[in-house]
Design a protein around this nucleic acid. Structure first.
Length: 726
DNA sequence: GCAAGGTC
């Protein structure tokens, strides 16, 4: 083909066929005679292909994507960063680029960070509220400089950048950070983004051929969040620390931080604490009927459950006794099942680890990270509780058949008992549920890894098994004018329960036979008296569940916020059951001057605890004072409540949907927080009063006093003051 | 010395 004589249309077609150029840019370049010589050269040698730079959010994804795009045929080179490698290969992106030379590399999460200029580094001056409108700089932290430089250098030789970050808002923002780094090296570089939600081969290949643009709205939403967290966090932290420090004592050496996630987290702990403290037991009465038949004792439950009026209960009870016989009114027997668990998410993993493995959420995440890096489990940060239909789960089950503990169970699944896992409703579009990747022999793991790996495997096998099945029998009877019922289950097939010791099927008593219309005289009928009991203090699993439900933090950061409020001495944990006042105020604590508001000893209950290693969260008096202080200032929304974070979430969503803009959100939010700040400054005496009260008592007795009210006495008996918060 | 969000 003679290029100089060809029409533009024909040229376009030819160039496209030879994978040389994006036809959209052809016109201007043709006029410059750009392609005449280049195309000729290209026919002579095939090495002059379009260069594409691909960048993933993390090294593992870069490797996985490179493997799929190259068919395993890539060359690896090291960069100046230990964790980051560049993979070179060729790949046919289809039109307009066609067959390309590709370099695939990665960042490690966010590439940049925000900070205030040097003249705002001092805490005292300019005053903290100046941070609301101080300039904010975006910088590449030292740790990331080599990563940014690698992208900048690679971009110089590339026609286009393809961003392979996770398919979520943060991923979109990280994409914009990568774009900016690439443009530093090549201002002309085209920018595209691959949308993918797992690293399965066909999915990745299809994503590579269906590139989209970066979503600037999502980028803006995250940028707004980043800037607000910085301004508000720094301003309130400096304000709190500086205004309370002059009061001396333990306040002198502490950093009193505020953060949009750590404060609501503290708020949950304080809230539960008051519910326990202010709980007033109420007496109630209930009729208990037991009937023995065929050697089985059947307990019938009163349809009214319980009454808080003693006289009424007595009257109804007497009517039962007068009637003497009960009449069976309903008998039913029907198949029932106990559902197997959903595929494992990060939040679930943390809840289970804190309940059953005696780990903190933070420890569980660190261990999960290690297992992931060794290739034993999938990516441990995921919100997804449904497996992609295309995944070969049977192959993963087969890998577990060699284990002595759950191998036979896995083998049974392989031999035909396999069932597709349940499909949850969450999908983060970035990662599958947590599951084992390869088999890890117990000797290959340390103690913590072994226990967590076991949990992941058992959960996975349970997911691939069948629900437990049984027959439920229900009997209803009339005794006097009162209705009673009994429920029993006969377990027929345990299925997943055999591999999943974290659950059992309680109430599995088998009922003897009853027939409708029959009359019998109950073996026993009693009027029993009871008292309502206080809720338990929060366990870590409860706290994680609350944060999750209220959108406080992300799966990856919840454990960090929980650590943070302990580090700041806002809360502490005590073993459930062993955690009484004496325990909480052990020798180590008064050294800081803050007594801890632990209550009476409690026995394991609720929260799925059971294990003796479960710890519960109790606020220190400092934590109580901060939350109460802010609550008492009567803002429209207290800083200690989760609503502000939720509002931020809604605003981010609005930016993403184009209903508002980053600029508007920033302006509104900054003004809002500035008002809260002014009000806090004006009502500082409220906060100070709380702390002063506190300081006076420190070192005298081991009692926590907030706003002049004793919260607990030194001994373990609970003294209930007038409830102030319900 | 301060935040929250990624990731190793």
């Amino acid at each position: 083909m003679n290029i100089r004589r060809a029409s533009v249309a024909a040229l376009r077609c030819w160039l496209r066929h030879h994978d040389l150029v994006n036809p959209a840019h052809l016109g201007s370049r043709l006029r410059l005679g750009f392609y005449a010589s280049r195309a000729t050269a290209a026919t002579a040698t095939t090495t002059n292909m379009t260069r594409i730079l691909c960048v993933a959010e993390k090294p593992s994804i870069a490797k996985a994507v490179a493997t799929h795009l190259s068919g395993g045929q890539y060359q690896t080179s090291n960069t100046r960063n230990t964790y980051i490698k560049n993979y070179s290969f060729t790949f046919d992106f289809g039109p307009p680029w066609g067959h390309c030379d590709v370099t695939m590399t990665a960042v490690k999460g966010h590439l940049t960070a925000v900070e205030f200029p040097g003249d705002y580094k001092q805490w005292e001056f300019p005053p903290p509220d100046s941070l609301f409108d101080a300039p904010v700089l975006t910088v590449v932290p030292d740790d990331n400089k080599s990563i940014a430089k690698n992208i900048e250098d690679q971009a110089k030789r590339a026609t286009a950048l393809v961003i392979w970050t996770d398919c979520d808002r943060e991923g979109e923002h990280i994409g914009s950070e990568i774009r900016d780094a690439a443009r530093k090296g090549n201002r002309q570089i085209q920018v595209k983004r691959a949308r993918f939600s797992n690293v399965e081969r066909a999915h990745i290949l299809s994503a590579a051929r269906r590139l989209v643009s970066l979503d600037e709205k999502q980028v803006d939403a995250v940028a707004a969040r980043i800037e607000l967290d910085l301004r508000i966090g720094y301003a309130f932290t400096r304000f709190l620390t500086l205004s309370l420090r002059p009061m001396g004592g333990p306040l002198q050496g502490l950093t009193l931080s505020y953060g949009s996630c750590q404060f609501p987290t503290l708020g949950f702990v304080v809230d539960r604490y008051f519910r326990v403290k202010n709980f007033v037991p109420e007496p109630f009465w209930s009729i208990k009927v037991m009937h023995e038949r065929d050697g089985i004792k059947v307990n019938f439950n009163w349809a009214r459950h319980r009454l808080f009026d003693r006289m009424m209960a007595v009257v109804l009870y007497e009517r039962c006794l007068v009637a003497r016989t009960a009449t069976v009114t309903k008998v039913s027997e029907k198949p029932t099942r106990k559902f197997k668990p959903l595929p494992l998410t990060t939040v679930e993993l943390q809840k289970m680890a804190t309940r059953f493995l005696r780990m903190t959420g933070q420890q569980a995440m660190t261990i999960a990270e290690k297992l992931y890096n060794k290739g034993f489990i999938s990516y441990p940060r995921t919100e997804t509780d449904r497996f992609d239909r295309g995944m070969d789960l049977r192959a993963l089950v087969r890998k577990q058949t060699q284990d002595s503990r759950w191998g036979p169970f896995a083998q049974n699944l392989v031999d035909g008992a396999f069932q597709q896992p349940r499909q949850g409703r969450h999908d983060d579009k970035a990662h599958p549920p947590i599951h084992p990747i390869t088999y890890a022999a117990p000797q290959a793991l340390d103690d913590g890894e072994r226990r967590l790996y076991e949990l992941v495997v058992r959960r996975f096998l349970a997911c691939c098994s069948d629900d437990a099945k049984g027959v439920a029998s229900d009997v209803e009877m009339l005794y006097g004018d009162e209705v009673f019922s009994a429920h029993g289950v006969m377990v027929l097939e345990r299925n997943y329960l055999d591999v999943y010791p974290y659950e059992n099927w309680s109430g599995t008593a088998v009922l003897p036979r009853f027939t409708v219309g029959e009359r019998f005289e109950p073996t026993e009928a009693l009027l029993s008296e009871g008292k309502t009991t206080a809720p338990s203090y929060l366990t870590e699993a409860d706290l994680i569940a609350l944060m999750d439900a209220n959108g406080i933090g992300t799966d990856a950061t919840m454990a960090e916020h929980i650590e943070k409020i302990q580090e700041r001495q806002y809360v502490r944990t005590v073993p459930r059951g062993g955690g009484g006042a004496g325990d909480a105020d052990d020798g180590s604590w008064p050294r800081t001057g803050w007594s801890c508001g632990a209550g009476r000893p409690r026995r394991g209950s609720g929260g799925g605890g059971g294990g003796s290693g479960v710890r519960e969260f109790i606020p220190t008096s400092l934590g109580v004072a901060l939350i109460e202080g802010f609550d008492r200032m009567r803002f429209e929304t207290s800083l200690g409540k989760p609503f502000l974070r939720k509002e931020m979430e809604l605003k981010m969503k609005a930016i993403c949907e184009g209903r508002t803009t980053k600029q508007l959100v920033l302006r509104e939010s900054i003004e809002g927080y500035r008002r809260v700040f002014e009000q806090s400054r004006a009502e500082l005496n409220v906060l100070k009063a709380a702390c002063r009260q506190e300081l006076k008592h420190v070192g005298l007795v081991m009692s926590a006093v907030v706003f002049g009210r004793p919260l607990l006495e030194q001994n373990a008996t609970l003294r209930i003051e007038t409830p102030r918060r319900i």
